[in-house]
Design a binder for these strands. Structure first.
Length: 397
RNA sequence: GCGCCGGUGGUAGAGCGGUCAAUUACAACAGACUGUAAAUCUGUCGCCCUAUGGGCUCCGUAGGUUCAAAUCCUACCCGGCGCACCA
């Protein structure tokens, strides 16, 4: 184990070649040297249990951690359960704190969702999970004072978000200055060699670097990964931009969500979210956007739902959207004397009768034989398959 | 505690006595088109109905003024800013 491994070298090169690592502190050279020295490095990735809307931007960081784990490093997934209850400074405002139950539930949900992406059960080198309440909850006020003496107010207010708030006259709560401190102390408490984070977390990660140097005289590496953005528009992948893809959905839905992303996202997805060798990139991109996107979507679905599901998802997508067909597994509903609209509301397919009337007048409702339904009071025969819009399918039994 | 400002639909954010179920943008939904659940164009976007019409609910909460309130008044709750208090 303590010798330089050619295979590892190749793998590390490949990892960096994807261009998803934007910053390394103190330097890339130092890190590569350390990784190749055959020493097992202890690295952590902090996750925020204030929410469970896990999208590809999170997923790709987890994938990166898995890669490091496979290279033999000690990999820690750290839940900021203590910090989540305090509230992280947000761009615009102070974030609300969560209850303990919320945080616990969220953490379980995170683990469920990321489990396909990182191995917590490997026999020799499993990824481990820790919680920062383990140490942060135990600090005394004196400890906190002593920690905070390592930073100046000037360093804290230097942050963009604080500058912005100062300018706007929005509040900056004192405890928000503690956040980088707490996150920095995570590094000390776990005595890590490195931290992986998104570029948005560099400030916090670097405060950990400062603390490690001051308190332990140790050089902590910080590896910052890019945030996935649309190269054409510069917009980050996010729900509000209509480009957020959440991983907690069925194979079919995930595949569809990926296919519907704008074409300029193909390359970032390839680089960030797949591990298809870089050598194949040009060949894949040369196949045109549709093929390339499908290939990438399939690879991503495979990582989360497995090979078989990824194949079915692609087939279902082609059958349903490219050919206008009907997927296999559709909701079956029984009328039982109620009107169609009533049954659909009950099944959660539509929200209200008003919505139903709208859909009918928009000619969004048709049978599988392409007959348009124009009467809201239409009573379908048993066995009829109804398409409502592009994505809603119902079979009457 | 005092003063000032604000709380509007999924979000941002107009409106500030009738013409407001509430401008606009984003999100969402639908149609056309398409390789696509993309882009673009078009339409829709509180609920209910015996429907080119009618009814109900809605602008922090509760009252009030008025023929009429999201719009004015009062109280309360919540948020922000400033000042003070911290004998």
């Amino acid at each position: 184990m303590a010798f330089m491994n050619k295979v590892d070298q190749k793998r590390i090169d490949e990892l960096f070649a994807r261009g998803t690592v934007t910053d390394i502190f103190p330097s890339k050279e130092a890190l590569t040297k350390k990784l190749l020295a055959g020493e097992k490095i202890k690295i952590y990735l902090g996750l925020d249990p204030t929410h469970t809307a896990i999208h590809l931007g999170h997923a790709k960081n987890i994938m990166f951690m898995e890669e490091l784990r496979q290279l033999g490093n000690e990999v820690i997934i750290l839940f900021g359960d203590f910090t989540a209850r305090i509230g992280d400074p947000d761009k615009a405002s102070t974030r609300k704190a969560l209850s303990e139950e919320d945080v616990t539930r969220n953490m379980a949900d995170w683990v469920r969702q990321i489990s396909p992406l990182i191995d917590f059960n490997d026999k020799t080198n499993p990824a481990t999970i820790r919680h920062n309440s383990e140490w942060l909850a135990k600090l005394s006020f004196a400890d906190v004072l002593s920690l905070s003496s390592n930073f100046t107010v000037q360093q804290m207010i230097e942050r963009d978000m604080f500058q912005k708030r100062l300018k706007e006259g929005s509040p900056i709560h004192l405890h928000e200055f503690m956040y980088p401190l707490m996150q920095g102390y995570d590094s000390v408490a776990m005595d890590v060699d490195a931290e992986l984070c998104g570029t948005d977390q560099i400030f916090n990660a670097l405060s950990g670097r400062t603390l490690m140097k001051k308190l332990k005289d140790k050089e902590k590496f910080v590896i910052a990964l890019n945030l996935i953005a649309n190269p054409a528009t510069g917009q980050l992948m996010s729900k509000s931009n209509g480009t957020g893809v959440f991983i907690d959905q069925s194979a079919n839905d995930l595949f569809g969500a990926l296919m519907s992303l704008p074409d300029p996202m193909i390359e970032p997805l390839f680089l960030n979210c797949t591990r298809i060798p870089m050598g194949e990139k040009d060949m894949i991109m040369a196949q045109g956007p549709r093929m390339a996107k499908a290939l990438i979507a399939k690879d991503i679905v495979k990582r989360i739902h497995g090979e078989a599901a990824s194949v079915t998802a692609e087939e279902a997508f082609i059958a349903t959207f490219a050919k206008g067909g009907v997927p296999d597994d559709i909701l079956e509903i029984k009328l039982d004397g109620a009107t169609l609209a009533e049954v659909l509301i009950k099944a959660g397919v539509i929200e209200s009768k008003t919505e139903w009337r709208r859909l009918v007048t928009d000619t969004a409702v048709r049978t599988d034989r392409d007959e348009k339904i124009t009467d809201p009071t239409y009573v379908p025969a048993s066995g009829t398959i109804l398409k409502i819009g592009k994505r809603r399918f119902v079979k009457i039994i």
